[in-house]
Computed example of a mutant assay.
Amino acid sequence: MIMATYQTLEIERAGRVATIWMNRPEVFNAFDEALIADLRDACIELDADVGVRVVVLGGRGRHFSAGADLNWMRRASGYSEAENLDDARRFSAMLRGLSEMSKPTIARVQGAALGGGTGLAAACDMAIAASDASFSTSEVKFGIIPAVISPYVLRAVGPRHALRLFQSAEKIDAQRALAIGLVGEVVAPDQLDAAVAKLAETLVGCAPQAQKAAKDLIAAINARPIDDAVSEETAQRIARRRATDEAKDGIAAFLEKRTPAWLR
Rank of each mutant, 00 (worst) to 15 (best):
1 M>W: 11
5 T>P: 06
6 Y>A: 04
8 T>S: 11
9 L>G: 00
9 L>P: 00
9 L>N: 00
13 R>M: 03
14 A>R: 04
14 A>N: 13
17 V>G: 02
18 A>F: 08
29 N>M: 05
30 A>Y: 04
32 D>I: 12
37 A>C: 06
39 L>R: 08
43 C>D: 03
44 I>S: 07
47 D>Q: 02
48 A>N: 11
49 D>I: 14
49 D>G: 08
50 V>M: 06
51 G>F: 03
54 V>R: 05
55 V>L: 11
55 V>T: 13
57 L>E: 00
57 L>G: 09
60 R>S: 08
62 R>T: 08
64 F>V: 12
64 F>Q: 05
68 A>L: 14
73 M>H: 01
75 R>T: 10
76 A>G: 10
80 S>E: 08
82 A>R: 15
85 L>T: 05
85 L>D: 11
88 A>G: 09
89 R>N: 15
90 R>S: 11
94 M>R: 01
94 M>I: 07
105 T>G: 08
107 A>F: 04
107 A>D: 08
109 V>E: 05
112 A>M: 03
114 L>Q: 07
118 T>M: 15
119 G>M: 04
121 A>M: 04
122 A>E: 02
124 C>F: 03
125 D>S: 09
130 A>I: 03
133 A>F: 07
133 A>I: 12
137 T>S: 11
139 E>C: 14
140 V>S: 07
142 F>V: 06
146 P>R: 01
148 V>E: 10
165 L>C: 02
168 S>I: 04
171 K>V: 10
173 D>F: 07
176 R>P: 00
177 A>W: 09
178 L>N: 04
179 A>G: 07
180 I>S: 00
181 G>Q: 12
186 V>C: 05
187 V>M: 08
189 P>L: 05
194 A>C: 04
197 A>L: 08
197 A>V: 02
198 K>S: 13
201 E>N: 09
203 L>N: 06
204 V>H: 11
211 Q>N: 14
215 K>R: 07
217 L>A: 08
218 I>W: 10
223 A>K: 14
225 P>G: 06
228 D>A: 14
233 E>L: 11
234 T>P: 12
236 Q>D: 13
237 R>I: 12
239 A>H: 13
239 A>G: 06
242 R>D: 07
242 R>T: 10
245 D>R: 01
248 K>H: 12
249 D>N: 14
252 A>Q: 08
252 A>M: 06
254 F>P: 01
259 T>W: 02
261 A>K: 15
262 W>M: 09
263 L>Y: 10
